[in-house]
Design a protein around this nucleic acid. Structure first.
Lengths: 276, 276
DNA sequence: CTTGCTAGG
DNA sequence: CCTAACAAG
């Protein structure tokens, strides 16, 4: 169970961010996503795979007290990202300036003024899956190359960022139950994992979850086939990737495996908001 | 509740025939179709809209004690008819020799030797719906014209027939709850009802159900929209159409509204088997 | 509103 | 195995 923010000494200065691939916002709403969110103490929620069109995105998907922003794919019922926030948003940007990031609703970014001297960007990213074949893997690989350039630019520009989302890549052995059996599976390919190494080791981004949690068996996605989730045969592919200004401000991280309204679990990270 | 055949003085000489549009045999199986059939005392069952391919038609759809014959459409998951019989079948014919009757699995006929001096043909017919637009209505009308010729031929040949099925046409005012509101609806169009008049009045076929039941409010299909079935806002569009040799042998007819494994109800008719 | 197909995951 | 679109009813 995730603690209430009120357990912190100064809970007003803790930012709780949730990342969740909802696998269809309409389906996850029926399964209690918004009931869970109401009790989660979340400040900002980054959703992926919303699979909802603007005209279907009715009031029941916009609970009172939340600022809600949707970036749908052009294709109905496919992909899409959203950001929900209890805190005021200064501005919202959608897309990354290249093909499928923009046409498939794979990136939405909210900019906040938390009064800490720098604008904070919190983004929801839905990286393509490569599992449906060679063509899909090729499109994923192109996305990775294009997106790496943007990540580098943000670092060069000294942006403060927390990019939550479904990266569809496990990083290390600890991040997947069946390591040896998945070496040739999309999402666990050596060149994909090397891409994450590059982001962290060379560009200096931080895996917020691993910054404070080093235990194995903490996954964020389980196949729907068989009893994968019950047996915890999972993959950790949902991350909070942040710039190094957050390094010493990560005060807690959880994956909420029992929140079962999707094939993914919510990944929750608490960040301390303060001027150093 | 439909009586057991054992309530008849000589139940061995009563033939119980069931017509049921199953709206997907796989779905209706899950909802208890075969449990109901096991207690129905049926001898022959004519199914329409089976929506199952031969390779999907596994053992669970072939209960022991039944002879089972499927005539699927070429298109997967679409239309299709079947005949199930506890009594031995002499031969089975599929199709009517014209286009969509044959390619869409809309007619299957079993021939029986009941030892009454003449072969008896029991058929399952699934007449096209015209409700999806003008093109569909035009195809239905062509079917009606082609099929009328065949019905005439069977009469000329003095065949003994019981053609069960979903005719997708109400006959008279008594056969539909909302008569005035459906005068322009496919299935209740004047020319369609006139076609049924022709079959009965000019070709001499008999509506087995109406031969023994004259009450209103006995329907065989209800829309899935709203609470149509609960409110009994229905249509009688499923018939047993038989040749006049059966006229004095119809001993009971029921529509089993509470058997809810489809948007249609089973229509059950008992026929006395005897040499006059 | 429902079945089943298909694409996508 | 799950979601959602689609065609058909």
């Amino acid at each position: 169970m995730i603690p209430k923010k009120s357990t912190y000494a100064d809970d007003k200065k803790v930012l709780r961010v949730v990342s969740i691939n909802v696998n269809g916002l309409r389906a996850s709403e029926k399964k209690g996503l918004f009931d869970w969110l109401a009790t989660s103490d979340a400040d900002v929620v980054c959703m992926q795979e919303t699979r909802i069109n603007p005209e279907q995105w009715t009031d029941k998907f916009k609970p009172t007290g939340w600022h809600t922003h949707l970036f749908p794919a052009q294709k109905a019922g496919y992909a899409g990202t959203a950001i929900y926030s209890r805190l005021p948003i200064k501005s919202v940007k959608t897309g990354l300036g290249f093909d499928i990031a923009d046409t498939q609703g794979r990136f939405i970014c909210a900019t906040f003024d938390f009064g800490i001297g720098i604008d904070v960007n919190i983004a929801s990213l839905y990286l393509p899956s490569g599992s449906s074949g060679d063509d899909a893997q090729a499109r994923k690989d192109v996305f990775l190359q294009e997106y790496a350039k943007i990540l580098k630019q943000w670092r060069d520009d000294n942006q403060s960022m927390i990019i939550c989302g479904d990266y569809n890549i496990v990083h290390k052995r600890i991040d997947i139950k069946n390591w040896s059996g998945n070496q040739k599976a999309s999402g666990c390919l050596p060149h994909e994992r090397a891409w994450l190494d590059h982001i962290y080791d060379e560009l200096g981004y931080i895996d917020s979850f691993r910054a404070v949690r080093d235990e194995p068996f903490l996954y964020s996605w389980w196949s729907n086939r068989g009893q994968a989730r019950a047996k915890n045969v999972g993959w950790r592919i949902d991350y909070h990737v942040c710039t190094p200004d957050w390094q010493d401000k990560i005060v807690g991280a959880w994956v909420y495996k029992d929140a079962w309204f999707s094939d993914h679990a919510p990944v929750v990270v608490d960040y301390r908001l303060s001027i150093d």
